[in-house]
Amino acid sequence: MYFQHSNEIWTDFPELVPGVLHVEGITAEAATDEPIARFNAIAQSRLATASESELPEIQAWRRTFAKMGLKPTQYRCASESLLRRFKKEGSLPPIHPLIDICNAISLAYAIPIAVFDTSSIKGHIEVRYATGEETYLTFSGEVENPEPREVIFADEAGQAHARRWTNRQSGLSAIRSTTRSALIVSEALHESAFSDVQQLIATVADELNAAWSVVPKTTVLSQSAPRFDF
């Protein structure tokens, strides 16, 4: 199996910096309260001096969504949506330890983090423009077809595991209590994206090791090295 971005995506978004991890040995039980509180405190500190829309990480994604023809205030990247909910409610509801820790790190860095159960991925997975024939399973169980030229995470079978790039993941590959293997992808486009994504990926790896005693395979991709084999 492998993960990559298409040549078209790299051509249209040369500033993109993707960080990727693959981890095995995940369970539904892990002690993550302490690190989540720590990362939440970082997010609270950042939001105390600026709104989420003013953060450079979010501004870069807003520009990207506008470039894709999407209204940035109608369709938001995942980290902006999390920050808005966190600011309003003061916390995020627990879902699964892996999702909870990745969401907390996403809040702290203001960078989207997608987490996929690899057992639901057929062959390779690629971030590319949709043909419009792919299928996307919503969390409510409905099947949709992405719009042609929409940026999606698509596998070899034409299953879309995320729509509108970092806007929304699919229910098909959502993390569950039975998940043992996960692909984790974080993408940024702001000025300091390379160093920030490097730090974010190292942070995720450290927290996974602390919670599950696992050593993930990690990398930061580039246009000259766009593929991650796992």
Rank of each mutant, 00 (worst) to 15 (best):
A78V: 08
R63H: 07
A193T: 10
S222C: 06
R84A: 15
P72L: 13
E150H: 08
L137D: 06
I105P: 04
Q169A: 12
T32K: 01
D117G: 02
D196E: 15
R227V: 06
L47N: 04
L208V: 02
L98D: 06
F230W: 12
P18K: 08
S53A: 14
K122V: 15
I36L: 03
G123R: 11
H190I: 06
R168Y: 01
F194Q: 14
A162D: 00
H96Y: 12
L189Q: 00
E144F: 06
E144A: 03
T32Q: 00
R180C: 01
V17R: 04
A110R: 00
E191S: 14
A154M: 11
S45T: 11
T11F: 10
V127T: 13
G25K: 04
A182K: 08
F153D: 06
A78F: 11
R76E: 13
S224D: 09
L221H: 08
S181W: 05
Y136I: 02
L55A: 10
A28I: 01
C102R: 02
L98T: 09
L82S: 10
V204R: 02
R62G: 02
F39V: 05
A43E: 04
Y129W: 03
A37L: 13
R62E: 12
G171M: 07
T73A: 10
G158P: 09
L70P: 01
E133I: 07
G171E: 08
Q44C: 05
G25Y: 03
R227H: 00
V151F: 04
P35E: 01
V185F: 11
P93K: 09
L183P: 02
A43M: 05
S119K: 10
R46Q: 12
E52C: 14
V115I: 07
E57H: 05
S177W: 03
E52D: 09
S186F: 01
L208Q: 09
K71H: 01
D229E: 12
G25V: 01
I9T: 15
P226L: 01
P97V: 13
E57Q: 15
A110T: 00
D196N: 11
L47T: 08
N7M: 10
E144Y: 05
Y129G: 06
R164H: 06
K71Q: 01
Y75S: 11
Q59W: 01
A30L: 00
H96C: 08
T219N: 15
A182S: 12
R168T: 14
P93R: 05
T218M: 12
F139A: 12
Q74D: 00
R84L: 15
W165Y: 12
L21G: 05
Q169F: 02
R46H: 09
I121D: 11
F3N: 09
A154L: 13
